[in-house]
């Protein structure tokens, strides 16, 4: 294959809606078996990219190959080998939990007999066996999400696309979803996901790109990005009253200082070493030394102003 065995191969991939350029000439490759993430704030172009990969949004410009095929001409064939978890659940509220899986499988040309067994396995995998014959409507958000994931697996996809798989879920429901996705990854399913949760990207992704205003701002593994764009540790200082002037206090000992309305962040490779100095000079109410996260990377790259 000309694209070096990548499951998804994009060069100069562009999506325009009228004058708006949602995806601006991006390049990336997704390799077989990896978990690849698109990270970015709302409006960064993540979902548009996902919809192009899912062959439900025509490419405006550039090259896109999915499973070695061209979405423009081979859309149905590609979709037959993909699993898609869209941003908003598109479950069929007029059908039961189980029927949702069966009819969706029928769309892929699977036989009813095959699907009977398959639906049981999938419901067990997402822990919904007990709701099999219930209507979809009253399910909780987490259950609906799990059902959507089960549905996306009905055709045994080679590539699974997940658009913000845990947005809007409570912490417990998120962990259940992560756990299931982690198991899929172990089974060798290639995952492509978008998220704006740093912990999600750190948990699930082998490699990720950070998107900002339709472009790819950074690319790498979570650890690489932290190493390259942040420090090993971050010290968070909180104050009882107004924040005292920090300027000059830590000169030469920190990589960067960031002042926020409610706290001060010190980026450093050795957080503990700064704690005595901070207490002595600034008298903070609390001091927290933590590992640097993708959130730090992300906010540094895309800024703290709200992009919506």
């Amino acid at each position: 294959m000309p694209d070096g065995g990548a499951l998804i191969h994009a060069r100069g991939l562009t999506k325009r809606f009228g004058p708006l350029c949602a995806v601006d000439a991006i390049d990336f490759d997704v390799r077989k078996g990896e978990a690849f993430g698109f990270l970015g704030p709302n409006g960064a172009g993540k979902s548009s990219t996902m919809r192009m990969i899912g062959c439900v949004s025509p490419v405006t410009d550039g090259t896109l190959r999915v499973l070695g095929l061209d979405p423009l001409t081979d859309g149905p064939a590609i979709r037959g080998r993909l699993g898609v978890v869209p941003q908003m659940d598109t479950l069929d509220n007029e059908l039961t939990v189980r029927e949702n899986l069966v009819i969706y499988g029928r769309y892929f040309g699977l036989s009813r007999r095959e699907l009977r067994a398959r639906a049981d396995d999938l419901l067990e995998f997402v822990q919904l066996e007990e709701r099999a014959n219930d209507p979809v409507e009253p399910l909780s958000g987490g259950m609906k999400r799990r059902l959507t994931i089960a549905r996306s697996l009905v055709n045994d996809p080679e590539l699974l696309l997940l658009d913000e798989p845990t947005t809007g879920l409570d912490p417990q429901a998120r962990h259940v979803v992560w756990d299931r996705l982690f198991r899929l990854k172990q089974r060798g399913v290639t995952l492509v996901l978008t998220t704006h949760y740093m912990d999600e990207a750190e948990q699930l992704c082998d490699r990720l790109v950070i998107m900002h205003q339709g472009r790819i701002a950074e690319e790498g593994s979570p650890a690489e990005l932290i190493q390259r764009l942040s420090t090993r540790e971050v010290v968070e200082l909180r104050f009882a009253g107004d924040t005292p002037p920090v300027e000059g206090v830590f000169d030469g000992r920190v990589a960067r200082v960031e002042e926020l309305p409610d706290r001060v962040l010190l980026y450093t490779d050795d957080g503990d070493a700064l704690v005595p100095l901070a207490h002595e000079r600034l008298g903070p109410q609390s001091v927290l030394v933590r590992r640097s996260t993708l959130e730090d990377v992300f906010l540094r790259l895309t800024g703290r102003t709200l992009v919506d």
Binding site: G54, V56, R79, M88, T90, D92, N155
Partner: peptide, 14 residues
């Protein structure tokens, strides 16, 4: 509203 066809179009159907 029900987005039935959005789900359908993620499959080989057109």
């Amino acid at each position: 509203y029900a987005k039935v066809y959005d789900a359908v179009l993620a499959t080989p159907l057109g």
